[in-house]
């Protein structure tokens, strides 16, 4: 049943891969467009450095970036939900930060924070903390005032109302935000590495670029995409478990 539902998507993906293979074979220049088969072979050849050094490096940056974003995002969202003053003070500023082209100023971070992981973490955080903050904030605001008032008449404290009403109502928003943030965080990490690093998939891809190794550029990109897909799948499974009630509404 589940496979059947996904069959159209799988077929489409296979067709695209096939098309890519054909075009690459026509061009016949791996430094311009390597074929999927060439990329797959490359991944196999480079499995040692790819999977023992560079993938863990990138995933570490992604994870640290995500954790910081989530903690920061939730904290800001809760403060803005609780205190109207802070909402008015912070919300417009947070929205404005989104217009800053992180990509353009990212080289500065390397200057400030060096070639270690923190310059990359900063890129990842700047890209991901916004969607998380805004979504969690929307989630907290999504509860109906009537529900809150009813709980007040029952004699529940505002902390209890927060725990029993706001947090459960917010969970679906939180999960969709994290699902959006995971790929963004990986992109942010890779972008940071591209700008200057000693390890990581972004760095690896750039090094292959300088060697005009087309398949070598694609190999880490494919690994990145697979990591993102796996992470989103894990989160989706968790989401299904925690907020099963949502489907029934």
């Amino acid at each position: 049943m589940r496979v059947k539902k996904r069959l159209p998507a799988i077929i489409t993906a296979l067709c695209l891969l096939f098309l890519w293979q054909i075009i690459a074979m026509c061009i016949n220049a791996a430094y311009i467009l390597p074929s999927p088969v060439q990329v797959a072979i490359k991944i196999w050849e480079l499995k040692e450095p790819l999977f023992t050094v560079h993938t863990p490096a990138t995933l570490l940056v992604t994870l640290v970036g995500l954790v910081i974003s989530i903690v920061l995002g939730i904290a800001l969202a809760v403060i803005m939900d609780r205190y109207e003053f802070w909402e008015r003070a912070l919300y417009p500023v947070i929205v404005t930060t989104q217009t800053i082209p992180v990509t353009a100023i990212a080289p500065l971070f390397v200057l400030w924070l060096g070639y270690g992981i923190w310059s990359k973490v900063l890129v990842a955080v700047l890209i991901t903390f916004f969607p998380i903050t805004i979504s969690v904030h929307d989630g907290l605001k999504s509860t109906k005032r009537e529900n809150e008032e009813l709980m007040k008449t029952m004699g529940l404290s505002s902390l209890q109302i927060f725990l029993k009403l706001k947090i459960p109502a917010c969970l679906p928003y939180f999960f969709s935000a994290v699902k959006m943030a995971v790929p963004l965080s990986i992109i942010g990490a890779a972008m940071g590495e591209w700008l200057g690093a000693q390890s990581g998939l972004g760095y690896f891809s750039k090094r292959m670029m300088t060697q005009l190794d087309g398949a070598g550029v694609f190999a880490p990109v494919v690994v990145l995409a697979v990591c993102a897909m796996l992470a989103v799948a894990v989160i989706t499974a968790l989401e299904r478990k925690l907020i099963a009630w949502r489907k029934e509404v």
Binding site: K144, N147, K164
Partner: peptide, 9 residues
């Protein structure tokens, strides 16, 4: 209340 306001979760 006028509406049941039961919590869906």
């Amino acid at each position: 209340p006028q509406k049941d306001l039961l919590l869906p979760w």
